[in-house]
């Protein structure tokens, strides 16, 4: 279980998070919606300890990880996987090496088992044939899927997805949605996904949370979200330029 309590983060004058509260239960998928630049990626980076908050706590299974240092932090991260918005593949390595890196360097398995596992993960994301290519030779959507394979390669308990379906064609996007649902159902992975893709959000989410002006202003199941009468939520879900949220701020 992950519990975010009253999280604040500013970059200089720019107050990005202003008291975020959010709870993610074990085995649950929570989708965080929000406008571009509202701090979704920043929020995810706090959960895995890449950024330190100015104020507030993040509990993972009851332990406040914002106080974790070095050894403890690395130990914790072994239980996490993260898909970056820009994929963040290691461009000096092949696709196969990217996906295998965590397993290899932590010596989690013998080499032949690692090879097998990497093959399986790449197959899951529909990229079986591309093992020996370098990231520079892949399309944006392919990179995203390699990033996804890398995030789940070590079979983490928690996965953070930063826009898992952005840049994918609708068919592949749906396949990835299916994969995320499968991961949750079969392996009971706890996950937080950030997305702009409302269709995908409805599909994969157990709960949807809306980040607006540095706070979570709404939380609810997809059904509740759909029928919500909150003007901010309605505007976001219907994707309208008219309403309480101004297109330009």
């Amino acid at each position: 279980m992950i519990e975010i309590v009253d999280l604040y983060k500013s970059f200089g004058e720019n107050q990005v998070l202003r008291g975020v509260n959010l709870k993610i239960n074990k085995g649950e998928t929570v989708v965080v919606l929000g406008r571009s630049g509202c701090g979704k990626s920043v929020l995810l980076k706090h959960i895995i300890g890449l950024l330190k908050p100015d104020k507030g706590k993040i509990f993972v299974d009851g332990e406040d990880i914002t106080t974790f240092k070095n050894k403890k932090l690395y130990k914790l991260r072994q239980r996490f996987g993260m898909l970056f918005q820009g994929s963040a593949l290691f461009d000096s390595m092949t696709v196969e090496e990217n996906v295998a890196l965590g397993l290899r360097e932590h010596r989690l398995l013998p080499e032949n088992k690692i090879k097998e596992k990497v093959k399986k993960k790449l197959k899951l994301v529909g990229l079986s044939e591309l093992e020996d290519l370098k990231p520079a030779e892949l399309s944006g959507g392919m990179k995203k899927r390699v990033g996804l394979a890398r995030a789940i390669a070590m079979e983490p308990e928690f996965v953070l997805y930063d826009e898992p379906t952005t840049g994918l064609d609708p068919i592949m996007a749906d396949a990835i949605n299916q994969l995320l649902i499968e991961l949750r159902n079969k392996l009971s992975i706890t996950s937080i996904a950030v997305t702009h893709d409302i269709t995908s959000a409805y599909k994969i989410a157990d709960r949807i949370a809306l980040l607006y002006q540095g706070k979570i202003v709404f939380e609810g199941t997809p059904e509740i979200t759909k029928s919500s009468e909150d003007p901010v939520v309605m505007q976001f879900v219907t994707g309208s330029a008219e309403g309480p949220i101004q297109a330009k701020e």
């Binding site: 890449l50 130990k75 593949l89 290691f90 360097e105």
Partner: peptide, 25 residues
Amino acid sequence: AELGTMKVTEQIDALETLALNPIRF
């Protein structure tokens, strides 16, 4: 140049999330 590019494309962050210490690697 190499580490700088890795920094701005979040590859260093990605190493961290794989629990690999960039100092060590």
